[in-house]
Design a protein around this nucleic acid. Structure first.
Lengths: 244, 244
DNA sequence: GTCTATAGAGTGATAGAC
DNA sequence: GTCTATCACTCTATAGAC
């Protein structure tokens, strides 16, 4: 074999250099977006520095600016990325054979979900809605996302109500708006005070909107917390910022 | 008359010194809170510096720290201040003689209001809810506010439904949660895309929750905007931060 | 395309005079 | 109680080496 240095697998920083530049570029972009999603969702956009995102992705801030131009660009790209994903509120694995009531239950369970990864993303989504109110550029992207989500939800709801012979509170498009509003509003209150929004209450509200005759609902099934449930969040790390 | 300097009405900075220190202290506190409300609501808490608040109140940042200890303390004091005020969502000037339907209309009008001062405060309220999700200290205050608001709303709703012989989707306390959720959710979507949430849609949703037989609802009364209504916000000042 | 290094600006908070 | 002055620190974004 010739004496030439055989090509190394990594450069001096351990970065894989075997693949094409295009592959590495896409990889870095994906890493940055994933890190940004995680950190922004956990701590809020303003509380996370560009350096922190880059570091979490195994890169430096320079890479962020090469890819997205600015922190704002990163936020917008992140919104765009998640567009094709599980963005719609009415996304839930429901069997078409289930009763409309249990399908609603599945939707709610999806929104109020165990509080895993979805809950964090939900928090970020809320923040972006807020940001959209003050930043037209963000507003455009969120509006587009929302319109797409609404179309999907409307079709879905149309099928359900037709099949169940329900008398919904509005036409499918309007009903999609109402259902989304109720779901996000309930999720918001539930984040603050879980006891205030028992599952059966949420289901009763949804049933009323879509026009299903709700069951009498025991309604006292869960104690209403309201006062200092106030879990001190043991183990939560100082909760103030992730900086470089 | 004696030759002594007569007491001046203001000191070298134009600050009134006739009143007692206690009065001036209260005045400064009120000024700071008013300025903070205005600026935080308009631009977001993180985008407004302590110096900017102090300057808008005709004081300096030192005064803020003397009164509230920290920026966070200012935010909390602001929440507390607004507690006794018009904080409840169901606050609306309605005549008891009005029909339940028109009372709901008044409530919605109050929430979706012309977009004046209330709309700005609403934005701040949203931000504080979001902040509460990450900061237990803020969460406590917001939770207390919310509980009080819910009690008030529940009593009010109880009266309405009883008088109208409606069949609400839940008991008064639960109904208060549902109505609040729908209202805030609709307000949120309306901020982003006003055309997506026509008044009659909101009213139909509310009627469904409280159990009033909603009118057939023309429902096509307003064009659904969805796409680029996107008013470029003429006259809005750069919208990025109010710093010192 | 990614890094290092740094400019340039701004922040929250504190000490001490008045 | 309020102000002035300043500390110690952080941020975003850019320039140039590799």
């Amino acid at each position: 074999m010739g004496p030439g240095r055989r090509p190394r697998d990594t450069d001096h920083r351990g970065v894989d250099v075997r693949r094409t530049q295009e592959e590495r570029k896409a990889d870095t972009r994906a890493r940055l977006l994933a890190a940004a999603t995680e950190l922004f969702a956990a701590h809020g956009v303003d509380a996370v520095s560009v350096d922190a995102v880059a570091e979490a992705a195994g890169r430096t801030s320079g890479a962020v600016y090469a890819h997205f131009g600015s922190k704002q660009g990163l936020v917008l790209a992140l919104l765009d990325e998640r567009k094709g994903s599980v963005l719609t509120v009415l996304q839930a694995e429901v069997a078409v054979t289930d009763s409309p009531a249990s399908q609603l239950a599945a939707v709610w369970a999806n929104v109020a979900g165990t509080g895993g990864e979805d809950a964090r993303w939900d928090l970020l989504e809320q923040e972006l809605w807020l940001r959209a109110a003050r930043d037209p550029e963000v507003a455009d992207v969120v509006r587009a996302r929302n319109a797409e989500s609404r179309r999907y939800s409307a079709r879905r709801l149309e099928g359900w109500t037709a099949a169940a012979g329900a008398r919904p509170a509005a036409d499918p498009d309007g009903l999609a708006v109402l259902v989304r509003a109720l779901l996000t509003g309930l999720a918001q209150q539930r984040r603050l005070d879980p006891g205030a929004v028992p599952d059966d209450l949420a289901l009763a509200g949804l049933a009323a909107l879509v026009g299903l005759a709700g069951p009498p609902a025991p309604s006292t099934a869960t104690t209403r917390t309201t006062t200092s449930t106030n879990r001190p969040r043991r183990g939560a790390p100082g909760h103030r910022a992730v900086r470089s």
